[in-house]
Nucleic acid binder design. Sequence first.
DNA 1: GGCCCCGTCAACCGATCGGCTGATGCGCGA
DNA 2: TCGCGCATCAGCCGATCGGTTGACGGGGCC
Lengths: 214, 214
Amino acid sequence: MSTAPATPPVRLLVCDDHAVVRAGLLALLASAGDIAVVGEASDGEEAVELAARLAPQVVLMDLQLGEGIDGVEATRRITAVPGAPHVLVLTTYDTDADITRAIGAGATGYLLKAERPEELFAAVHAAARGRTVLSPPVASRVMAQMRAPVPQLTEREQEILAQLAQGLGNREIARALFISEATVKTHLGRIYDKLGVDTRAGAVAVAKERRLLR
Amino acid sequence: MSTAPATPPVRLLVCDDHAVVRAGLLALLASAGDIAVVGEASDGEEAVELAARLAPQVVLMDLQLGEGIDGVEATRRITAVPGAPHVLVLTTYDTDADITRAIGAGATGYLLKAERPEELFAAVHAAARGRTVLSPPVASRVMAQMRAPVPQLTEREQEILAQLAQGLGNREIARALFISEATVKTHLGRIYDKLGVDTRAGAVAVAKERRLLR
DNA sequence: GGCCCCGTCAACCGATCGGCTGATGCGCGA
DNA sequence: TCGCGCATCAGCCGATCGGTTGACGGGGCC
């Protein structure tokens, strides 16, 4: 229709483990015109490899990737190298744990799949310029996080919680982690405090809900 | 390119709560040519309403729909009326509970988002002719189900389990459901048997894992 | 050096859970 | 009508859990 665009299209790499969703994203992004999908990955390892080889400006990354490394780990590896592309997370969950982990791993933006497609287009361009983009619900959570830091579980507490979620008793947890039963109970008490529960079943429920495991 | 097609395109209604995914599906399905998306819904109620009003041949339905009724309930309502469209479930999970519930609600097919896009196209056409389509993993589970029926929780047991997942104690569960503590313990024992666990935390973990709640 | 967080452990106690046996009533289908 | 599955309840017991208090050592930070 018009003359050649003033700016070349954004070079984009798409990573999502669901083929249908991936194909949908490609078809959708193609309609944007000023975005060029230069590659697609179906798992974390492939994304890391292609990010290095194709040198896109932006990587659109899902956090849940089935087998292999997850999106957070992939993001960490991609952004580790100098001159790395910006990673724009596109996922369904706006959990505190996911958000903080993704940002901690070096993500430039965090968008929800519930967002309008136009927002996605805008976010890709913003990410290409290194700008941070957050979906409104995500932004809210980040702000809330700053005001009142969510009590975060320590590494050890997460390990205890993981065992707990297997349905193990205190004695079994103690044996599994090579500590005494007393220590397990101490940790559990602190976990109850942080999660705002007072039973092990409740702790497992909250953990699964907030996606604190794995 | 060629002459008019021998068969008119399949009239399709798409239901998914994530706008980006929905837009992606629309863009993807548009490329199929012989599929005409006549409407899109972002929640269950809207899907039921549009299914009745637009009279599509096939409804492409996600099971997880955020607020309001879920995909199973929407499927049940859509297929309840005579001359109803066929419902083709398109979701990410291949859990036994989800599959059986969806089929029980009247779904014609059950496809995974991990499937290749061509399979999706083929499945839509198959569904339009009333044929049953199942993703390979789903088909396997259905067959396994037939051979060795998974111990299914009774309605009451699910209620008990739901309370358990809130972290409630036996006494509280008893009060919440207006039964005696002894009854709660009896139910719990049977739940442990069916789920293959022997602790309440383990039961909650399995329940969340197999998506037996809500 | 002092402080604080983290992880470790001990001992105690009451409350709760898990497992068991056995029993009743109800509805449904053979 | 008989049998079966489901839901309900009782009582008992040992094992376990949850809460508490107190304590010790290491590592990071000022």
